[in-house]
Simulated assay, not measured.
Amino acid sequence: MTTLLFLPTIDLGWRWLRVADTGAIHGDEGLPALEDAIVAIAPAESVTLHWADLPARSTAQAVAAARLLVAEASAAPIAELHIAVGPEGEGDRAIAVVDRGAMAGWLADLAAHGIDPQMVIPAPLLLPRPVEGYVHGTIAGTGMMRGRATAFADDPLLTPLVVGDVPVESLTGEALDDALRAAVAAPPLDLRQGAFARRRRIGIDWAHVRRLGTMAAAILLVTLSIDLVRIAKYSFGADALEARAEALGRTGLARGETVTDVDRQLVERLSNVRGPGLGFTTTAAAVYAAIRATPGTELTGLDFQPNGDLRLSVAAARESLPTDLKRALERAGFTVEAGVFQAANGRVTGEMTVTRR
């Protein structure tokens, strides 16, 4: 047995219709007894309905696509709207748009009366979707219209403008009851999605929890054993590599030199070979790269100092080029001190001192 509970509006209070398992339908005003499954019915004037062809991969993807469509058609900020999509079917899917504040208020009012509805369905979707034209029905005192791609509250002023000359079928009596039974059996759309989804109570199977704990402990023990074996293997391998590296390092030292610390002695010998600072080769390579990157400049002199500085004699075609060369060297990671450049015979000449930064 399912009870359809119609949320109150400005003109109407609480109303309900009860659909029995036998198919019988009866209702009344006020709040029903709470022993049945409750399905809340949102007012037609508070929900905007659309239909569109949405991705069928997952509900999250469908909602994301619906948000893009609604953002283009709605004047309200998308962050203030709650969007729900109907189930997959043939062709397009229903999209319901409702104000987040209104949705939260409905659920809060229901909770205050001890009601946690299984679903919240927009009222116009209780009517069947026609093959063509429109269907009209009055349910729980509210008139509603539904077409192939629209559904809304019946209004004596707006409905004729929307419907125009399209034929309208009025559902009454048993035909309307059949429509309600079909909506209960296969709900067309549930607004309780996303942030407003119904929370499910989960019972704890402690025996299952203990089994999971035992399995987790066994997995942890096996993982720890694997890690210990791996650490031991890496440690032995590191020792072997260190011994081999030291043996290879000894070959790089001068013949007959007493070995005390291979790393330090190799660094010392490398420094002696390449010179102080970054060494002549590295510094000169950076200077030549900067010269090539600055067209119109040429190197006329090069003097590597005992402290690792490199003194350059530079000639340039224009006054701006020595500055460009200086910036290029600084971008390469050097400190550059430029002397006074003089112009003579159409050339600008001067000196620079390049130092490791």
Rank of each mutant, 00 (worst) to 15 (best):
Gly346Gln: 10
Leu241Gln: 12
Leu34Met: 12
Ala217Thr: 14
Val120Ile: 15
Leu241Gly: 09
Thr59Pro: 01
Tyr134Val: 00
Thr258Gln: 15
Thr300Leu: 09
Gly133Lys: 11
Thr2Glu: 08
Ala104Arg: 13
Pro8Ile: 11
Leu248Gln: 13
Ala285Ser: 10
Ile78Tyr: 06
Val19Trp: 06
Arg198Gly: 13
Ala183Met: 05
Val336Trp: 08
Trp206Glu: 08
Ala285Pro: 00
Thr9Arg: 06
Gly13Asp: 14
Gly105Tyr: 10
Ala56Arg: 07
Ala20Tyr: 08
Phe6Cys: 00
Leu68Tyr: 03
Arg230Asn: 11
Thr335Trp: 13
Leu312Ala: 03
Gly249Asp: 10
Ala20Met: 12
Val135Asn: 01
Leu312Phe: 04
His113Cys: 11
Arg311Ser: 10
Ile226Asn: 02
Pro306Glu: 11
Val262Arg: 12
Met1Phe: 08
Ala186His: 13
Gln342Gly: 07
Leu312Met: 11
Asp21Asn: 15
Thr150Ile: 02
Ala293Asn: 06
Tyr288Asn: 15
Phe334Ala: 09
Glu298Gln: 11
Leu176Arg: 04
Thr59Asp: 04
Asp36Val: 05
Ala182Lys: 09
Pro87Lys: 09
Arg311Phe: 08
Ile78His: 02
Val287Thr: 07
Pro43Thr: 04
Ala182Thr: 06
Ala245Ser: 14
Leu4Ser: 02
Ala76Trp: 01
Ala289Asp: 14
Gly279Leu: 07
Ser170His: 06
Gly203Ala: 13
Arg230His: 12
Leu248Glu: 15
Val267Asn: 12
Leu329Ile: 13
Arg148Ile: 01
His82Asn: 05
Ala289Ile: 07
Leu299His: 02
Val163Leu: 02
Gly194Val: 04
Arg264Ile: 14
Gly308Ile: 03
Lys233Tyr: 04
Arg198Pro: 07
Ile25Ala: 05
Leu4Pro: 05
Leu158His: 05
Thr214Tyr: 10
Leu110Glu: 06
Ala42Met: 07
Trp106Thr: 06
Thr260Asp: 14
Ile95Val: 09
Ala112Met: 09
Gly91Gln: 09
Gly339Lys: 08
Glu268Asp: 13
Asp154Gly: 00
Ala96Trp: 01
Thr251Ser: 14
Leu325Pro: 09
Thr355Asp: 02
Thr22Ser: 14
Met145Glu: 00
Ala207Thr: 11
Thr260Asn: 14
His82Cys: 01
Thr159Leu: 00
Pro306Gly: 07
Leu107Thr: 11
Ala64Met: 01
Arg181Ser: 03
Glu268Leu: 15
Gly89Ile: 00
Ala64Ile: 02
Gly23Leu: 14
Glu242Thr: 13
Ala217Arg: 14
Gly296Lys: 12
Pro187Asp: 02
Ile139His: 04
Leu12Tyr: 01
Glu268His: 15
Val259Trp: 14
Gly346Asn: 09
Leu253Ile: 14
Ala104Met: 07
Ile115Ser: 02
Glu242Leu: 15
Ala140Arg: 03
Phe6Asp: 01
Thr3Met: 11
Pro87Met: 09
Glu351Tyr: 03
Ala37Arg: 12
Ala76His: 13
Arg264Pro: 05
Ala290Cys: 12
Ile95Cys: 06
Arg255Pro: 10
Asp239Leu: 12
Thr353Asp: 05
Arg347Thr: 07
Val354Thr: 01
Arg201Lys: 10
Gly346Pro: 04
Arg264Tyr: 11
His136Met: 05
Arg129Thr: 13
Thr260Ile: 15
Pro130Ala: 03
Thr355Ser: 13
